[in-house]
């Protein structure tokens, strides 16, 4: 690709810079609030005024506007088991994402490459179910979980979210775009169904599966309401979003601590995206061009 002339480059950055600021503002605001001393979270000043210092000084004569104490409190407060919450969130999000990918890949292969009576109608029915808002399913799902005696269990936290129609659609569309000749060639070579799926379809679907994994992981990492209701308060399986909401009191919110917790909570997701971004972009564009 030819490099752009300097003026065009300048114009491009002039457009992109405000967009960048707009996109990054919430993130920066979160970090700044997390760094503010208690009481300053909602103060719309960022530079210390008279009688204030930036950080704690040894004399303690002036009020410090910023502190690292919120991060320390979140990580090491005995009443806020951050590490347990984070581990639970990782297990729920990871487990759910893995199971979703496994289910959607097999189902997607079936819907894309297998012939069975009513296939397209069943698929259309499943797609139509996406029109129903997810919250509608909450009560029946809760009733089922209750019936199974799954309250306060990993099963309740993970299993109901593994049936992901969007994921099925994503993988079905991708697998459909794979040439049938590949499958036929594998069959000529003597491959049976499991081999075809494992050695032909899956390797070619890695970017889409990674994308689905990431999307599911992010969705479940930040899932609040479901994880709140399937765990009683004495449960050891409380997740991070539920834990962070403990900073919300009856009339007031400890914004500084809550934002410090939120800063930590985005780290795993950010790392995952950084590691898997090339798959993610490839996965989103995969299937966009039909054979």
């Amino acid at each position: 690709m030819r490099p752009l002339p300097p003026k065009a480059m300048l114009a491009r950055y002039a457009v992109l810079l405000p967009v960048l600021v707009l996109v990054q503002l919430p993130l920066v605001w979160m970090i700044v609030t997390a760094l503010k001393a208690p009481g300053y979270g909602l103060v719309l000043r960022f530079i210390p005024g008279p009688g204030e210092t930036w950080f704690e000084d040894a004399t303690g004569a002036a009020k410090n506007m910023y502190t690292l104490g919120n991060f320390r409190n979140v990580l090491f407060d005995a009443d806020f088991p951050f590490w347990r919450f984070a581990t639970n969130s990782a297990l729920v999000a990871g487990g759910c994402a893995l199971m979703t990918v496994a289910l959607c890949a097999t189902a997607g292969y079936g819907f894309a490459k297998k012939q069975f009576p009513g296939r397209d109608r069943l698929f259309a029915l499943l797609i139509a179910a996406m029109l129903v808002p997810g919250l509608i399913y909450m009560v029946p799902q809760y009733a089922i979980v209750l019936k199974f005696g799954w309250i306060n269990t990993w099963a309740a936290m993970i299993v109901p979210h593994t049936a992901n129609i969007f994921g099925l659609f994503l993988l079905r569309q991708h697998i459909r775009s794979l040439p049938d000749s590949l499958i036929e060639a594998a069959k000529v070579d003597g491959a049976h169904e499991i081999s075809i799926f494992g050695r032909v379809i899956l390797p070619l679907s890695v970017p889409v599966m990674v994308t689905l994994f990431l999307l599911t992981f992010v969705g479940q990492w930040s899932n609040f309401l479901w994880q709140l209701i399937v765990n009683t308060p004495d449960s050891k399986l409380i997740t991070l979003p539920v834990g962070l909401s403990y900073f919300q009191g009856q009339y007031s919110v400890q914004w500084e601590r809550m934002m410090a917790g939120a800063c930590f909570s985005i780290i795993p997701v950010a790392v995952l995206f950084l590691v898997a971004q090339r798959f993610f972009i490839a996965g989103l564009t995969a299937g966009s061009v039909k054979e």
């Binding site: 009683t232 539920v242 909401s245």
Partner: peptide
């Protein structure tokens, strides 16, 4: 047991069901 304050009533209702 610690419950997010704003979700207490919601939580109690679902606990009553369960």
């Amino acid at each position: 047991g610690q419950v997010p304050f704003s979700d207490m009533v919601k939580r109690l209702k679902s606990a009553a069901l369960a």
